[in-house]
Write a protein that binds this DNA or RNA. Structure first.
Lengths: 210, 210
DNA sequence: TCGTGTGAAGACGTTCACAGCT
DNA sequence: AGCTGTGAACGTCTTCACACGA
């Protein structure tokens, strides 16, 4: 992997650029300048150009970028060429909430299965996804080539379940549990910690009072 | 505000340190060294010490930190001395999911009200929080001194609703909508973008295949 | 001339390494 | 002796400013 020098934040911004490009595309725009696109994405033009050059040269000097082409290029970089299957592990309060939410599917991810330690207890109202026991994790993920997992188990169980996911071949984990996960270098963990985010806001709110 | 030089990431780490301290406290530990606490939090000892010195001196040289005292100090820094009321705006799929989740309350935040453009349509099963119309946002938030909001409206409505929240005195917004919000400098926005996180993982997963 | 691509500078955050207190 | 607190070095990301091509 010779791309070690790409900032992780740049990958996030790539997704944002893509959204903006989609909007431009829907509005019939065919080309866009770095300043226009950067403005829409909430970054500086130089940053946008730098981010893109991590992956190649996509623009035409004096003209800008082709909305169509750039969109395709970013999609390819992000590995979103084909639909990615996702497993959801831990169908407790938050897990079921996310299953009901289904916002992932709109964005091109398919939650193909859910797993819970006690699958029978999962209230299945409004859930279109099958719920299996933890025992099925390894065989199912392997057989279906699932490489992405959404982890919503309680903090105490998180590491243990994670180990199982890693053995089953999962390479990316979206971790909603309040636990710092230990994983091999080849596995990526993105943490979404709702309590942490609120606590963080709390700090800035109390700042303002002084 | 003379604390402009504190990295935002440091505030997040503070929350993590606090969780570790709580665990240590429950285990009856009275003091802890920077290396032990840093290990539990998944950071380097020097980073932990640096983070703490942004806010003062809490340790004893040759000895370490008092678990109890440090916990109190961090709590104070984070502005978590008293219960913070939170409003949830946008009771669609995700909004209702989060109301059902109730994981915030465990961590000391109270969701005091929800708002929706069509409050009548909100399925109230399992929701203990009153749902009001958007019109009520300003008076309610003002009267109840709510300074934190969780925003779960669709992307198109996000900026408009945000403006209203800002006028109503909200200073911190946890934004689940896929929109880059424009807010005055005194307002903090933390973005939680589930699709973005999955897309990001998708990049790293496809990296591994090459 | 216009806007991209990029070397160089700058800002920011992290880590080192050790001075200094207990 | 042990561990914190911190100046200084380092690495990383961002921004500038301009050369270069369309």
């Amino acid at each position: 992997m010779e791309k070690a020098e790409i900032p992780k934040k740049a990958i996030y911004r790539l997704s944002i650029y893509q959204r903006c490009l989609t909007k431009l595309h829907e509005n019939g725009k065919e080309t866009v300048s770095s300043s226009a696109l950067a403005g829409a994405a909430g970054v500086k033009p130089a940053q946008l150009r730098r981010d893109l050059t991590y992956f190649g040269q996509f623009g035409t000097r004096g003209l800008g970028y082709s909305v169509q082409d750039l969109r395709g290029a970013i999609r390819e970089v992000l590995g979103r060429e084909q639909l990615q299957p996702v497993a959801l592990v831990g169908a407790g309060n938050l897990g079921v909430a996310l299953l009901r939410y289904r916002g992932f599917e709109k964005e091109g991810f398919e939650v193909v299965a859910a797993f819970d330690s006690v699958p029978e207890t999962v209230v299945s109202r409004g859930i279109a996804v099958p719920v299996y026991s933890f025992k099925e994790i390894s065989p199912f993920l392997r057989d279906n080539g699932v490489k992405l997992a959404i982890l919503c188990v309680p903090g105490e169980a998180a590491q243990e379940v994670t180990n199982e996911l890693v053995v089953a071949g999962v390479q990316g984990i979206l971790n909603f549990s309040p636990t710092v996960l230990q994983v091999p270098g080849a596995v990526t963990v993105n943490n979404v910690d709702l309590a942490l985010e609120l606590e963080n806001l709390s700090y800035f709110v109390s700042q303002g009072e002084e």
